[in-house]
């Protein structure tokens, strides 16, 4: 495993830790999109089916379990925890996220590496992950007040896929890996969706101002 891949996984983990910290310590999920969180549950549930069939490494298995358990628990907190759920911005989080699922699934049926259940679901998870952040970005834009934890959560989440791009370049060059257009292009789209957010995040960080996205 190369340094970009490890750094990518660690920022992904860090983003989830930041979100859980917000939920646990502030007992709040203000500014967090439940729609995006639900999409991540679907992403991990369809991608990590191989946890039962293929063993890669201890690291791989543990990380998969961590991502599955944390994504389920975040959704549980936002839906059912009696304090946390009252802080959910239900009226602002109106992105029709179901409309993302069907096109991603159809695309996975059409464009995949191999037409097997496991491979189609894996591909579906890549397509869905690429666009899963959209409800969250829309919610951020509507939020007048973005707290630091929420801003950092989205930043780390974007950094994760950005670092994966370097991981793929490294693997292609150094490990002579094959062309892998499906993850590369979905990863590129996923990272590009953060471009606008990154711009304002870094600008506010430089000026030491509170993050606010233009409406």
């Amino acid at each position: 495993m190369n340094v970009f891949r490890l750094a990518g996984d660690m920022t992904h983990l860090l983003s989830i830790m930041v979100l859980l910290l917000k939920i646990h310590s502030m007992k709040s999920c203000a500014g967090i999109s439940l729609k995006t969180q639900e999409l991540y549950v679907l992403v991990f549930a369809t991608r990590y089916l191989d946890i039962f069939t293929t063993y890669f490494s201890f690291y791989n298995t543990v990380m998969k379990i961590v991502f599955l358990v944390t994504s389920f628990s975040i959704v549980w907190y936002m839906r059912h925890h009696k304090v946390v759920r009252q802080t959910y911005d239900r009226d602002q989080d109106t992105f029709r996220h179901h409309l993302l699922v069907i096109p991603c699934f159809l695309l996975a049926l059409l464009i995949n590496h191999r037409f097997t259940v496991r491979e189609v679901l894996w591909t579906f998870s890549l397509y869905l992950e690429a666009v899963a952040i959209l409800p969250q970005l829309v919610l951020l834009q509507r939020s007048r007040n973005i707290d630091n934890l929420t801003g950092n959560y989205v930043f780390f989440l974007g950094a994760y896929r950005g670092l994966y791009l370097f991981n793929w370049i490294y693997r292609y060059m150094a490990e002579k890996s094959q062309l892998r257009w499906i993850p590369w292009i979905s990863g590129l789209v996923q990272t590009a969706l953060y471009a606008d957010f990154f711009y304002y995040y870094i600008k506010s960080w430089k000026k030491r101002e509170k993050l606010q996205l233009p409406a």
Partner: peptide, 10 residues
């Protein structure tokens, strides 16, 4: 094996 190579990522 490309499938192994892809699926070892998270």
């Amino acid at each position: 094996n490309q499938e192994i190579q892809t699926h070892d990522e998270l």
